[in-house]
């Protein structure tokens, strides 16, 4: 590796607060919010067998 003045890539990432803002929001939005809301949307109703066994219909 040459000892040039070139800034390492990771240092650029560490210093780029706008990129970090984007990453932070994205991880949260996808992993917590969107995934969570999708799971809420997928919940099934109470199965009919259970209802029938009690209500006899």
């Amino acid at each position: 590796m040459s000892e040039e003045r070139k800034t390492p890539f990771l240092q650029l990432v560490f210093d780029d607060f706008i990129l970090l803002l984007f990453i932070g929001v994205a991880v949260y939005a996808v992993s917590y919010l969107i995934w969570g809301l999708m799971e809420l949307a997928w919940i099934p109703p109470i199965p009919d067998e259970i209802k029938q066994s009690l209500l006899g219909r």
């Binding site: 560490f14 970090l20 932070g24 991880v27 949260y28 969570g36 799971e39 809420l40």
Partner: peptide, 30 residues
């Protein structure tokens, strides 16, 4: 600090661990 930015926010899931609705995969991951 970068690890905080990436990972700390999803821990909102702490409050939903014994809730109905979300799956164990979502819970453990977040």
């Amino acid at each position: 600090f970068v690890l905080y930015i990436i990972a700390i926010n999803v821990a909102s899931a702490h409050h939903l661990l014994v809730d109905p609705a979300v799956s164990p995969v979502w819970k453990v991951w977040n």
